[in-house]
Design a protein around this nucleic acid. Structure first.
Lengths: 251, 251
DNA sequence: CAAGAAAATTGGTAATACCACATTGGAGGT
DNA sequence: ACCTCCAATGTGGTATTACCAATTTTCTTG
């Protein structure tokens, strides 16, 4: 039937990629059996050893399970890596950032170097430009926050915060909600980022913490604003009340 | 030469396991070339297709890189997965916990249920028993801190803190240093944990934060105590000074 | 209709052959 | 003596064929 497109190297890799795509397309749901090795060999115009190599590649990746005398069965779909913490909402994510990044900013204020301050200042300007671009990707925003995390001189802190941003990128719902919030609310972020920068420049931990908290509180507000009323009104009120309680206790 | 031990299923898996062990043993350092497929086939008494399957399994795992016409070369050693944040010290880890878990405790104080309080109380008692056991594994300690993280009702926070504990477990140096610190300093932890529990029970965020900070500051102290003077005296002073600066700013 | 046996199907492994690419070493020229 | 080039050799890449073992299906049979 269909032919293998291109690639002079490693036929089995092309075939494994093709099969992975077919898995992702839903052509073979979880639990389904793949065609026999001999059939696949004919279908793709390759030899059976090559088919076996490709299936072994999928097997090692945990995509399929091979049962002797029976066949190769779909174990999980390509997209669904079991990354720990994959099931977090945009609210949880931002709440976590509110807690962690605020403290990180305070620590960074005691550690930041002049070079890092210059870099952060450059990123603030980049964020301003990014905001004017209707199709901005928030790359500068991410870089800004990670630069502060890095200024803590603590790899564990930097990694934890970087991870939160990755979760945001890999969670479809979170990315969508953030995008909605962004289009509806563009103005204040520049000032907030500048305030954070100012506190860092002053080497004032308390001010840096407060500025970061203010910024992320604003982000949560914009998320709340972007939330459909009818849809999750209850969850919205709960998130609001939760934050209020925490904020009041730490004011 | 050597024979394959056992296993009626999947010869290539046995062979891949054998090769992985030989990689781990340092028999083939990074960059070294593995014997030719034909040689391995003879050495292990299997056919070349089977050897190819095993090598492909290693290749998919990123252990070796196959160059056409040249051979299979060791890319990385089995133990060294590139988990993000693999290179963190015990100090960084605990400092991160000091920042994150303190805030998590504050948030948890506003969210914790009576059931969770009962569970946490149970864990405090378990920690006390664990401390009397010279070969305690700190399982209860971990469970205690994760229970508090869970009481925040925020999966992102829980995951981030859980990750820090995993890093501690997977980092040999960190585990070693903690073990040294534990044997040298057993007494205060019970009181500290009880203090945290008390603050949670009182639903007092500020007190919970302070209690957690006090506890983890104590942990850092014990780590400093366990650090060999001659070895990293400079790093020790730096860590001490860093924490002091942050603590003074948040007192 | 059910239980068991036979046949067909499927993955597992081996053996062999040939091709393409890489490396190496020696022939030949400078 | 040195460098260049190319052929021989080694190595992985793939195909073909064959046979075995486990499973599944089919069919016989009580």
């Amino acid at each position: 039937m269909s032919e293998i497109e291109k690639g002079p190297d490693r036929l089995y890799q092309d075939l494994a990629r093709n099969l992975t795509e077919e898995l992702a397309s839903g052509q073979y749901p979880v639990g389904a059996r793949l065609p026999a090795e001999r059939e696949l060999a004919i279908k793709y115009g390759v030899s059976r050893p090559t088919v076996r190599e490709a299936i072994i590649a999928l097997e090692v990746q945990g995509l399929v399970e091979v049962r002797i005398g029976s066949g190769a069965y779909v174990k999980r779909l390509p997209g669904s890596e079991d990354l720990p913490g994959f099931n977090v909402s945009a609210f949880e994510l931002t709440e976590a950032r509110l807690l962690f990044e605020s403290e990180a900013a305070a620590l960074a204020a005691t550690q930041v170097t002049d070079e890092e301050l210059a870099e952060i200042e450059r990123l603030v300007e980049a964020i301003a430009r990014e905001n004017n671009d209707p199709r901005g990707t928030e790359q500068a925003d991410r870089a800004f926050h990670l630069a502060i995390a890095k200024a803590t001189r603590n790899n564990a802190i930097h990694d934890a915060i970087e991870r939160l941003w990755e979760l945001r990128a890999t969670s479809p719902e979170a990315a969508l909600l953030h995008e909605k919030a962004r289009t509806a609310n563009i103005k204040p972020v520049v000032d907030e980022h500048a305030a954070i920068l100012g506190a860092l420049r002053a080497r004032d931990p308390a001010a840096a913490r407060a500025a970061m908290r203010g910024h992320l509180s604003q982000v949560i507000d914009s998320l709340l604003f972007a939330t459909e009323e009818r849809q999750i009104e209850e969850a919205r009120r709960a998130a609001q009340a939760k934050r209020d309680r925490y904020s009041r206790a730490t004011a």
